[in-house]
Design a protein around this nucleic acid. Structure first.
Length: 278
DNA sequence: TGTTTATGCCGAC
DNA sequence: TCGGCCTAAACAC
């Protein structure tokens, strides 16, 4: 489930269940390709922060001010789960054991999630549109000429839109209403500054709507957590869909169905609708 | 029983 | 830019 809002939930969850807890050991599942962790403390606290689609975990020494960091991404299925020790979920790939017979596990069925010790936020990912809005706005608006890909594909570029993924781009574009998703992104941001606001407000809405429901990580996908009221477009049978150039399904309002899906025909379309040279 | 699909990257051409 | 990385559930036959 992990886009910007879910990373915030995950970070919240780690902080909630780790509050006041002392951890004593970190362990990696050998099947996972990422490097083992080396937490150089015998007793430590854990704290988490999220930014876009990344998390940073802080391991704080019980006996000093020293700490180490681990940067984590969630892939398609990553999440954290606190259990009794010995009852960790299948597909737990990192386990942090407390001194109270509990384990905080990083659970990830598909193993697309990654971690690396000693790192903080990635240099090649942009600001978080919800917590660093001004930097986000500046970065987009000062690079309009570089945003040449169509809006619906550009919104997945983490260099500018850190935290936006496949469902958020669908919901952002759907709510933008009159904004053609298939025209070049830079042009659309220049024409419709409200797009910048939506890149902040829709992830915030997802966070607000999901607040009560996503906590049940035993059943993160099946309970319609964010669906009613929030998920208007993504996965909706009455909407249209097509594959983007990366093979991801893009859900959109059927009113844009006349936009050519073939790249060969798109040149003429841009000339007519976008005012661009052929 | 086989195929398609899944909220994401990542690196080899 | 395209296939690869993974498991599991939903769907097709």
């Amino acid at each position: 489930m992990p886009e910007l809002a879910e990373l915030k939930f995950t970070s919240d969850y780690v902080n909630q269940v780790s509050e006041g807890v002392t951890f004593v050991k970190a362990e990696k599942n050998p099947i996972h390709k990422c490097d083992d962790l080396n937490i150089p403390f015998t007793k430590f606290k854990i704290k988490a922060k999220s930014k876009g689609k990344e998390m940073v975990l802080y391991f704080l020494d019980h006996y000093s001010d020293k700490f180490v960091t681990v940067r984590i991404t969630m892939g398609m299925s990553g999440h954290f789960k606190l259990t009794h020790t010995g009852e960790e979920a299948k597909h737990s790939h990192l386990k942090f054991y407390s001194d109270a017979d509990t384990t905080l596990s990083f659970v990830d069925v598909r193993r697309f999630g990654k971690w690396k010790q000693g790192l903080s936020w990635s240099e090649d990912r942009g600001p978080d549109p919800t917590t660093e809005y001004k930097e986000f706005w500046d970065k987009v608006m000062t690079n309009l000429t570089k945003l040449k890909k169509p809006l619906f594909e550009m919104l997945m570029d983490q260099k500018y839109f850190n935290g936006i993924g496949n469902y958020l781009r669908a919901e952002i574009i759907f709510r933008a209403g009159d904004v053609d998703p298939f025209l070049p992104a830079g042009m659309q941001f220049a024409r419709y500054p409200k797009l910048l606001d939506l890149c902040r407000d829709i992830p915030l809405l997802a966070y607000a709507k999901g607040g009560g429901a996503i906590k049940d990580w035993d059943n993160p996908f099946g309970d319609g957590a964010i669906t009613e009221k929030f998920m208007l477009c993504y996965g909706n049978k009455t909407m249209s869909k097509r594959k983007d150039r990366n093979g991801r399904t893009f859900w959109y309002d059927p009113k844009w169905d006349d936009v050519p899906a073939s790249r060969d025909d798109l040149g003429d379309y841009l000339y007519e609708r976008g005012g661009l040279a052929r």
